[in-house]
């Protein structure tokens, strides 16, 4: 059945789920963002041990499934004495997972800034820290933004998996509502639209940042 009238009556039941989804997205993307820089720099560190630890982290989280990681954090870790709430497990696992991907973005964007920029900094007698923060990072950040934007949308979509570790997010509320109302098409159309309504400002925000940071570029 294709809905003719917008099924606004279903909205109130879904809204609590939107809150959970938003919370997860915001907190886990903040965690991912921080990890991206810490680990991205870690992989470029001159210290071998920091490089190795960072690389193991990245390869582990990229190489295993997000769902399995969620199940581990929520169902397995308690057996080792680490009890996490479903929200904590969701935020941490999503943050760790997307942080791993994003750290690769940070690393490759920094490496993509021409070496001649570093040399110009040296010729002006800047310290290596000044060169990194005043010369390299502002340029690398511009390169990072589009892939960051993509990862952010991926993360938002990835939050739907947390319904499987008992979190009542948008996806979970939708599934519940489908069972109680049996209005499958309407419910999931609405869920789809709400995800998009959350994602769209994120896309616009990243584009805004891009144009801000690309000022003066050819």
């Amino acid at each position: 059945m294709i809905p003719i009238n917008p099924p606004f009556d279903l909205l109130p039941a879904l809204l609590p789920g939107v809150g959970i989804t938003l919370q997860l997205t915001i907190f886990s993307s903040l965690l991912a963002f921080m990890l991206a820089f810490i680990v991205g720099f870690g992989r470029l560190s001159k210290y071998k041990s920091i490089q190795v630890v960072s690389t193991i982290y990245v390869e582990f989280f990229r190489g295993t499934s997000l769902l399995v990681q969620l199940f581990w954090a929520y169902f397995v870790l308690p057996h080792f004495g680490l009890e996490l709430t479903a929200m904590q497990a969701g935020v941490i696992v999503l943050g760790l997972n997307y942080g791993a991907y994003a750290s690769e973005v940070v690393r490759s964007s920094i490496l993509a800034v021409p070496k001649s920029q570093t040399e110009a900094g040296i010729a002006l007698n800047m310290t290596s820290t000044q060169i990194m923060y005043r010369v390299i990072l502002p340029q690398a950040f511009l390169t990072m933004l589009p892939p960051f934007g993509n990862l952010l949308i991926e993360l938002l979509k990835g939050t739907a998996l947390v319904s499987l570790i008992t979190l009542s997010d948008l996806m979970f509320m939708g599934a519940q509502l489908r069972i109680t109302t049996l209005r499958t098409t309407e419910v999931f159309c609405l869920v789809l639209i709400i995800y998009f309504i959350i994602a769209y400002p994120l896309i616009l925000g990243v584009r805004g940042l891009e144009s801000k940071f690309s000022k003066g570029r050819a």
Binding site: S116, A120, A123, M126, R134, G216, R217, A218
Partner: peptide, 27 residues
């Protein structure tokens, strides 16, 4: 010592003024 390069190597994200003031201020 100071150096001028074949490929200029200006900082593309800074205005001309900032290119020239950045090091005097911070270095």
């Amino acid at each position: 010592i100071g150096m001028v390069f074949q490929q200029f190597n200006l900082f593309p994200h800074m205005t001309i003024l900032r290119n020239v003031t950045e090091a005097p201020i911070h270095v």
